[in-house]
Structures are given as structure tokens and as C-alpha cells.
Nucleic acid binder design. Structure first.
Lengths: 342, 342
DNA sequence: TTGTATGCGTTATCAT
DNA sequence: ATGATAACGCATACAA
């Protein structure tokens, strides 16, 4: 039975040259040129022995592991798998592997997991789970590890972010509701500690003000999490305190919860109240009513964040753009209709 | 500005002892006992310097990287994220990191990706994307890397599998349809190159025979992929050639496609034809009609596969069970009703 | 163009 | 109980 893993030494012995020659032959960028036929001979031997480089050893020597870390809040949340695929689609062809961790948006877990990544010597980190205030990742970035945030961003630090145009998204939804005749439009806001929650809320409030629509304090309910239960709770509170004809939710899951609440109360959506989401989760087009929402480029932000990270990893001097904003699209479905006549 | 990463040497210098002493103090299993107060002193220094072990170096020496590979067909398929979380839930507390790769169920990609994992020296592989015939992974397992398959399994090889009780699942659905009065029950089978597709089909055919139900060759349509488009196509073919009152689909996505086909043809589900799925994907309870399906323990199989792998990694002599079967549950929803009176 | 020597950070063997 | 030293596999500065 042949040895488990072949090393450069095995190839060297096999071909009668020195290890360093093999190293150079297999990795042209390493040293000077080797005669072509020797290169061929060495490559043939490597092939024959089924040689695979040991990236641990190489990484120990070069400080590059060809591995990057990907931090995600929770992969079971359907918006993240496409981001991961986008990241992978650019990284894998370049030879990078991805270590993925779920932070559950918990600062404590994040601290832990950043170390898990650093101990493995990742060449860079793509952070889709960043909190608005996130000292640990700032520290890591300052220490020299390339870091890119995606979807979310961190405030007032030099960490590049690839995000969707949430300002535009919110305005598109709002215009659509306005065109349908809605004037009392409420908002279920996303968590305050996430940039997406905060920024969409601000965009909403700004746009509503600019349109001259009424917005009492009770018109915006703050959710604690981006999930269905919170959507339900916030919708209940909203209707207790105000009488909006439409609810603009900070994401699809909040919207699903809100619609469920309306259903449970026997309120028809959209005949009595219209509801909108954000993100365009898969399969939601099959619901009744279909959810009017904003489609964001998940795969796209994944790709761009990876491209950006690669640039930062390969050329530490390159000045990265501080922010990259991708376009969004309004998706009209059945959950929006004209407001009821009073 | 302090050095990027602290090493054992730094701690040694700081505390005035030798590197090997530091290594032993920080990792008790390494060598003999160290005096308690020295251990304390060393740990304090490590803490103070923010020391993190370099797993590359340790792995190079010990051949254990505390990293495992997870191979998945496609993380955007909603059944896989929970499996990943299950895996992570047992691995992460033990200090393991996970490198995840998507194979798209392509043998070519799998070959490639297995090498990506091996080059990084993973201590073991959890394989949720295994094909029924999969020479590459067999080779890796033979070479000594612990491998566990999950959800799917590989035929006739000594690779442990953690799966759901598909035989039971299919029988539960079939009994339910039978109780509702269905006699002409068709099947849209999953891909032949996947154990799940093949096994569910066999379970279906066996159970149908045992129940004495009619099943012409046209009563089973073979899909090429587990997706909605194939569900649509197979449903069309099915109704061209036969007149079943119920369609048992090999998974939810095929069922969604089939239901869409019926809708497109103006055939009411379940009043004219009942349809069932398999897997209980999230959010499908909100559809109309709700999909009657089989709930499988995704998180559970993930956990069990990880536990099994840990045993194999830590004790290579331990005899692993060749198969572990987890229970399933029938979920009754609106897509099944009594057959129409002829 | 190729060989020699050294070190990356750790653990393990041997000595003290 | 602790120190010295070698080795894991590779890349690279230097020598030839």
C-alpha cells in the first residue's frame, strides 16, 4: 500500500533532483526557470504519484493559506446561501477554500469565531454578519487581515462594504404604495444593531417626510429580530396604536409575520391593508397573496465582495473602494393593492 | 505597534522558560505535568499577549488540523443549511472548523473539491453530496481519511451513512393516500444517480405491490434532477400516459413543479388530483394548497453524522455503524384529499 | 539552471 | 519538572 500523501521529497527522489528544484518546477512563480524537459519530467512524476501540495506547510512558510473565512449570521436564512455561492464562484477557481461560520449575530460568538478563523491563518475575511458596532473585527482588520463586509456594513471605519441600494429600494416601494393611493404608510423596522435595519428605517423616514406623508411616532415599530414572530408582534402593536393602510416591512420575514397576523385577525391583505417585504426570498412568489418586495442581488454582492477581497489579499497596497452599492429591483405581487375607500 | 501574531517563543521569552515548557503548559495532553504556579504564570502571559495557537504549524507536526470538510450539492437547496447547522453544532464546541464546498452533484467538481479539502489536511469529511457510484471518495476513505455520508449514501462500500428512514416515509405517505381512497397512485422518481431517488422509488414500488395497487410502467416517471422544472415536465408526461388520482413525488421541489403544472392546466389540487412531497422544506406550509409531505430530521442527521465522524477521527480503531437511520414524520396538509368520484 | 541551507510555529523525543 | 533538539513539508536567499 502506497504512502498516504506524497511530498516534494518523494518526487525529488523519483526524478533524481533536489526538492527545491521540484518546488520551483511545480510552482513557476517561486524561482528561476528550469529547463523545459526537466519541468515536464517532474510534472509527470508528480502526476504519477498523485502529488498534492501540503498547504499547511506552504502556508506556514509563506503566510498565505489560500483559505478565506466567511462569517454569516445564519445559513438557514435563505438570503445567505446565494451570497455564499457568489463568493465561492470567484474564490474557488482561484484556488481558495472557504471556511464558513455562523455567528447568529451574537457578538460573543463572533469574537470566538474570528479566532477560529485566525488560528487557521485565513488570508482574508468576508463578513456578512457584521454588527453596526463590532470592535473585534475592527481589531483584526487593523492588524492587517483584509476584511470586506457584505450586505451589512460597519459604521465609520475603513472596512470596505458591498451592499445593496437600500435607499433606492425603500423609495421604490414607497412610490409604488403612494401611486396605489396609500397615504398612511407604516414601517416595521429591522433590528437597530444591524446596518440594514437602521438604514432602511432612516430611508423610510426621510422619503416619507419628503413625500409629505403623515408619520406619527406609532407609525414605526422597532423589531428586535428579522423573523416572523417579530413581524407578527410588531403588526399587532402597529394596529393597536394607528390605522395605516399599508405596512412597509424591513424584510420579507417580518412581512410574512405581519401578513400572518392580519390573517389571524381576519383582516384581508391587500384589500384592507397592503404589506411589502424586502429581499425577495425564494418561493415567496408562490404564496397567496404573493409578496410585493425588493429583489437584491445576493449572488452579485457575494461575487463583488470576493473580488474586492482578492484584490486586497493580493495587493495590500491597493486602495479599496470604501463602499460598493449594487442596484435593486421592485417586484410587484399581490400583497399590494389600493387602499380601501373610507 | 505590537507584532501581528504572538507565538510560543514570545511567551517563552516573556516568562523566562523554554518554548517546549510553554507548549506543555498550554496543552496539558502534550507532556508531563508542570508546576501549577508556572502553568498559571504561562497562561497569564499567553492571555496578556493575546496568544492564539497557529494551527497550521501544529497541524504540520501532528497531522491533525481540527478542520473538517463538508461536501454539499448546493447550499441554496433549503434542505442543506439545517444539516450544516447540525454538523456545526457538534463540531464547533469541540474546536473544529468546517470547510464547506458545493459540488452541484457533479462528479468532476467532486474530484476537484476533494483535493481542495485534502490539501488543507482536513481530519475528516462529511459528505452530503455523495453519488451512488463515487470512486474518488472511496479512494480517499481507503487511504485513511474518516468519511461519513449524510442524507445520501454510497452503495456497497464501508462508508458509514446517516440517513432518514425513507422506506417508512414513503409507506406513511402511501398509507395516507390509500386511506383517503386513492388507488391509482403515480410516482415522480428522483434522479437515478442519487441514493435518495433510487431508494424512494424502490420503496414506492415495493409498497404499492404489497398493497395490491395497480402500477403500469407509465405510473412512474423518472426525473433527471430534483427541481421544479423536472416536476412540471414529469407531471405532464404522467398525465399524458395515465390517469392517476394522486402523485407521490420524491421530494418537495418536484411536487411544487407538479402542482404548478396542474394549476397551469386548470386541474384542481387536491379536488381532482392529490400531490405529496418529501423533505418538508421551510415556508411550504404557507402555500395554497399546503403541501402534504414527510418531515425529515435535517439538523438531526447533521448532528449524528458529525458525532460519528468525531468518533472515527479520534479513535481510528472504533468500529463505526455502517448505517444510522433517523425517524421521519408525515405532515398532512391541503394537497391531499379524497379522489374525485368517477 | 540547479543545489544547499535555513526557518515558518509547533509537538515530541530525548536528555538532564 | 524542565530544557535542548529534531522534524513536519515547503519556499526562498544564497551559493555554485
Amino acid at each position: 500500500m502506497k504512502k498516504q500523501t506524497q511530498t516534494l521529497r518523494d518526487i525529488a527522489r523519483e526524478t533524481g533532483v533536489h526538492v527545491s528544484t521540484v518546488s520551483r518546477a511545480l510552482n513557476p512563480s517561486n524561482g528561476a526557470l528550469i529547463t523545459d524537459d526537466l519541468v515536464d519530467k517532474i510534472k509527470a512524476a508528480a502526476e504519477r504519484l498523485g502529488y498534492r501540495p501540503n498547504r499547511l506547510a506552504a502556508g506556514l512558510r509563506t503566510n498565505r493559506t489560500m483559505t478565506v473565512g466567511l462569517m454569516i449570521p445564519d445559513i438557514t436564512n435563505t438570503i445567505f446561501p446565494p451570497i455564499l455561492r457568489g463568493v465561492e464562484s470567484v474564490l474557488e477557481p482561484l484556488g481558495y477554500a472557504v471556511i464558513m461560520v455562523n455567528t447568529d449575530s451574537l457578538a460573543s460568538r463572533e469574537t470566538l469565531l474570528v479566532d477560529v478563523l485566525r488560528e487557521r491563518g485565513v488570508d482574508g475575511i468576508i463578513h456578512a454578519a457584521v454588527l453596526r458596532d463590532d470592535p473585534k473585527i475592527i481589531e483584526v482588520a487593523r492588524a492587517g487581515t483584509p476584511v470586506v463586509t457584505v450586505n451589512r456594513k460597519i459604521e465609520a471605519e475603513g472596512i470596505p462594504a458591498v451592499v445593496n441600494d437600500d435607499g433606492l429600494g425603500v423609495r421604490l416601494v414607497l412610490s409604488h404604495l403612494h401611486e396605489q393611493g396609500h397615504r398612511r404608510i407604516a414601517h416595521i423596522a429591522g433590528p437597530e444593531n444591524l446596518s440594514t435595519g437602521r438604514f432602511r428605517r432612516k430611508s423610510f423616514e426621510d422619503a416619507v417626510a419628503r413625500m409629505g406623508l403623515p408619520l406619527p411616532p406609532e407609525g414605526v415599530i422597532q423589531s428586535a429580530r428579522f423573523d416572523e414572530a417579530e413581524g407578527w408582534r410588531c403588526a399587532e402593536q402597529l394596529l393597536d396604536d394607528w390605522n395605516p393602510t399599508a405596512i412597509l416591512c424591513a424584510n420579507d420575514r417580518l412581512a410574512l409575520g405581519a401578513i400572518q397576523f392580519l390573517k389571524d385577525r381576519g383582516i384581508d391583505c391587500p384589500r384592507q391593508i397592503s404589506v411589502t417585504g424586502y429581499n425577495d426570498m425564494p418561493y415567496l412568489d408562490r404564496l397567496r397573496p404573493g409578496l410585493t418586495t425588493v429583489r437584491i442581488e445576493l449572488f452579485g454582492v457575494g461575487q463583488e465582495s470576493a473580488r474586492l477581497l482578492v484584490r486586497m489579499m493580493t495587493d495590500p497596497e491597493a486602495t479599496a473602494p470604501s463602499e460598493m452599492v449594487l442596484p435593486v429591483t421592485l417586484i410587484k405581487r399581490g400583497s399590494v393593492g389600493p387602499p380601501p375607500a373610507d
